[in-house]
Design a protein around this nucleic acid. Structure first.
Lengths: 330, 330
DNA sequence: GTGAAAGCGCTAACAC
DNA sequence: GTGTTAGCGCTTTCAC
């Protein structure tokens, strides 16, 4: 392996000089600079990042922790964050917190042990207290898709109440008055927020009753809830709001089996704008998670705290309605 | 930040001893060991991975390069690889080669600069020559989803010819005799292999002519090719083989618009077993990419070369048919 | 079983 | 402008 002193020796300069041409900091005469560069090229020299990081106490890399690598959502998040940092020649370290709080803790420890300058965390399992502790010990931290009150400046989250309201407004606008809901698991903050935004908006328009079934965000549960809704429907609904797209697609599938046409017989609004929602028939009207916004704001927050930027950031990001073909105007 | 010498001082031992209890190598008396462990816990000591890596010339982490983070495929690959290494307390570094050969080179250089013990690469843009060069300079390398002849031991790829044959056999078994194809881009090795396997199997059964249109693997192109096929169909086909699921779903969508029923009027076989294929109506019969196999074999290859394992690995992995609802038996 | 000391490849401070 | 040198936090001999 070629090291900096090999280069220094062959170029007949000191290691300090080589270091200066590598980093571009400090001044080097054009002549020496060229010579050093030549030797570097010739030997295919690649500065050792580990040593640089250790010596400078700065790794120029930021750690990203996601619950898992699968799923379109996390991929998009990672991709977006990476784009930002790659643009300024920094890198990201990715770790998955697969499997509960312990996994997440491990992943974070790993990231910290590699001297990440900053951390972007999508933690679903760790407790609020633990996160507050972490943020005290290591302030260069951005929390994604989660609001932890004591450290709200570090949080970049979606205003799901607003999202629920948007869904409701769309259905109201189309003239639907009898609406069913397939909600996400009520143990989850985001599921509750979506639903409460939805119901609040309905209430504001004088629509006080609706029927709902609780699912668990999976395709299967969507189909099952749909069956339930359909079997004992003394209550004739014309539209369904689903807590996420997967369940909406499960419902869509069940409806197709039942011979019910969407949107002719019943309208559906999903939530998440997942890739799937674009590939169904009919294409799903849904609420878009502003992943790029979240990623951008979290990344900028880290750039501010770690790399002396001074960019305005927004913590609560608004979702948006994506109009497609699953809602029919009455 | 707590360092190893802080621990040594507080536990009244030398740094060497602390190092031994951290690594578990060498012998330490039970008494000292306990004391050191206590101090470590008390100070929330986290060994610095960067320093360890530099000192030991071994990072216990392996680099993974994928073309992009989005898409189900890469997520699954990364997740699988990570599972293997996490199980033995090692970690993965992920980088995306977004944007052509340069991006891939950058990503690989980055991974190497961090002293990765081994590399698992999903390169789509770099030339064979360049890969051979790389493999000479750095032999701890596994190539995923690609066959580069001179270094075939390092390659873990799918036998797409076999996949094409499977698709053909399924359709043949159902009694289809007039078949249309929406192929992937013929510039791509895998698209050609899929198609040639398909055609070879047909030929073996005496079916010599078929109609085909070339797509580019996207949803949109699937829909467009389907239109083309449908418009000027002097040729009455009863089945379609698509080069991947995305195009198959595009075709499905177009067919639904056209009022053509699947599989009643026409059968479809896709390729890839993407998540999407499970969420369509009807569910898509398709060919499964053995991602877990690929990941496992590539990971084991690296474990053999980097970490003294001795596991049997297979280079050419066979896909499999996934039977669902888009093929009708005539 | 344990401590001291010499690096790992680099940066940064300091002399010149 | 440039070379020298002292670390960065750790592992790994090598004595004891």
């Amino acid at each position: 392996m070629t090291t900096i002193s090999d280069i220094a020796r062959l170029a007949s300069v000191g290691v300090g000089t080589v270091s200066r041409v590598i980093s571009g900091k400090g001044s080097v005469s054009e002549k020496t600079r060229t010579r050093v560069l030549e030797v570097m090229k010739e030997l295919d020299y690649r500065p050792n990042g580990v040593a640089r990081s250790l010596a400078s106490r700065k790794s120029n890399s930021i750690g990203v922790m996601v619950p898992e690598f699968q799923g379109r959502y996390f991929g998009r998040l990672i991709a977006q964050v990476e784009k930002f940092f790659r643009a300024e020649n920094r890198h990201i370290l990715v770790a998955s917190g697969s499997g509960g709080a312990t996994g997440e803790r491990d992943a974070i420890n790993y990231l910290r042990s590699w001297d990440c300058d900053g951390l972007i965390l999508y933690s679903t399992e760790m407790s609020n207290d633990e996160i507050v502790c972490l943020a005290e010990a290591f302030p260069n931290i951005a929390l994604v898709n989660r609001l932890v009150e004591p450290v709200r400046d570090h949080c970049f989250y979606i205003d799901h109440v607003a999202g629920g309201e948007m869904a409701a407004r769309r259905l109201l606008k189309a003239g639907h008055g009898r609406i069913a809901c397939i909600t996400g698991p009520m143990t989850k903050d985001d599921a509750r927020a979506r639903q409460s935004g939805f119901e609040m908006e309905l209430t504001r328009h004088g629509l006080l009753d609706l029927i709902k079934v609780e699912g668990n965000y999976t395709y299967e549960s969507g189909a099952m809830c749909m069956s339930k809704l359909w079997e004992n429907r003394k209550w004739e609904f014309t539209a369904i709001f689903c807590g996420n797209d997967e369940m909406a697609i499960g419902a869509l599938f069940k409806l197709a089996e039942l011979g019910v046409r969407v949107p002719d017989d019943v309208s559906i609004v999903g939530y998440d704008n997942s890739q799937l929602s674009f590939h169904t028939f009919p294409k799903l009207t849904t609420i878009m998670n502003p992943v790029p916004d979240i990623a951008a704001n979290a990344a900028n927050f880290i750039r501010n705290t770690c790399y002396e930027h001074n960019i305005q950031v927004k913590n609560a990001l608004k979702p948006a309605l994506v109009e497609r073909d699953s809602v029919r105007d009455l």
